[in-house]
Design a protein around this nucleic acid. Structure first.
Lengths: 234, 234
DNA sequence: CGTTTATTTCTTGTCGACAAATAAAATACA
DNA sequence: TGTATTTTATTTGTCGACAAGAAATAAACG
């Protein structure tokens, strides 16, 4: 008599399904695995994760709350678009948050914060050395998020992380189109920022954060300027 | 034969239930009708709105996403507490947002924006004249939200509105404990801000926003200093 | 052949019910 | 009487099913 084959790992803890779906979809959206405009189908996801639509739905509500997906009433829901026309507002906001969080980190960091920040910077340097674009983007985010945490202002940290995540989508396009030697420069700037924070030099931290932000903004703007030229019909 | 009595208004449009519950709970939380720590019971709400637990749940997930309620896994969910120990981070953030949004409004406002802002200011003045504390809080929020809208940076607007809403809870306590003549001063400062915005005077807008914010922060701090004295055991 | 109307299809929104997890109550035990 | 253990109760998390809405398709009509 043949043994009955059971599904390998159908076991899941009670409240874990939502977080699982949320985290995975979030990553896929930010990595552009699910590019803007991708349709999100509830039943399809329910089959994929072999669970009911209810927890899927809860994860989608959360993602919608963060603006990562758009829901048309009674109709489809899809990955939200990047508003290229208003990118300047994004740059404006993220530059300010770079400055504020770095300033506050210089002011309020505790002894335990610096090792964490340095660890993230080491990860970033490793990703740069390996020329791993996806890892660079992720570790860069974590590095700055750690600085924001050390600044001890949850409101700024929340906005900054949101902006960094939205930036992940934009940076993903950036690194998709060309790889140059700038990442090394970013790594060096990170080191300077750490030094300024460790020295509790608020003004230096602010200056470095601003130039770091300007640097990134300029790079992205150049990318889009180039793309726009390509878009012109001949 | 007696007519069968039907429930008066059981009709509700398909996707409207969630928004209904969300808006109402949100208002009750921000007005302190539901003070921090109040238990939120799903079945109770389901009965109150005569609908299933599913839409209630969705509304709660959204509120949790904004940090207005805290959810203990598998156990109760309740209105989130106000973190009085870290109020300074709140003041820091809202002061910066007052400044940024007012600056940006001075820079980017369109002809259509000023009438809207003035309308909200008129509502605020009316509430002040009527000594209606709740209306003052609500119209003050709307006034500053309108300025933020005119600044045309959705990231700042979103954070600012969130801070203003969180502030609604704090201000509610403020006006509960004592009414003085300061609201008139706030109304005057509002007028000055409108003038600066209309004149596109960024520096003046910034200065006024900063002093306005400082004014409010100082008032709240005085309230809490007073409360703290009362809290000391005799 | 083009336009309007009916039908089908597909997705979402809502429901009632059940199972799991935890707290509270009751019981057993020293 | 105090503590540990079992039982009950309450609340949440998940499920499958059904109905409403809107787009896509088919049909009717000029």
């Amino acid at each position: 008599m043949a043994d009955i084959i059971v599904t390998p790992i159908p076991e899941r803890k009670r409240g874990s399904g939502v977080k699982l779906v949320y985290d995975l979809l979030r990553d896929e959206i930010l990595d552009l695995t699910l590019p803007p405009g991708s349709p999100i189908d509830e039943v399809q996801l329910a089959e994929r994760f072999s669970m009911s639509r209810t927890p899927i739905r809860e994860a989608l509500v959360r993602l919608a709350g963060e603006g990562l997906i758009d829901t048309l009433p009674n109709r489809s829901t899809m990955v939200s678009n990047i508003d290229f026309l208003n990118l300047h507002t994004f740059f404006e906001a993220i530059t300010l948050m770079y400055r504020m969080t770095t300033r506050l980190a210089a002011k309020h960091h505790n002894p335990g914060d610096l090792p964490i920040i340095r660890a993230h910077q080491a990860e970033f340097a490793k990703a740069v050395a390996a020329q791993d674009a996806l890892a660079m983007i992720a570790t860069n985010r974590d590095f700055h998020a750690a600085i924001a945490e050390a600044g001890r202002n949850p409101y700024f940290t929340a906005l900054f992380c949101r902006l960094l995540d939205e930036g992940r989508r934009i940076l993903r396009m950036y690194y998709q189109s060309f790889d140059d030697r700038l990442p090394q420069r970013y790594a060096d700037e990170h080191e300077e920022m750490i030094t300024a924070i460790a020295a509790r030099d608020v003004d230096a931290a602010d200056r470095l954060a601003k130039s770091h932000a300007d640097q990134i903004v300029r790079q992205i703007q150049q990318l889009f300027a180039r793309d726009q030229r390509q878009d012109i019909a001949l």
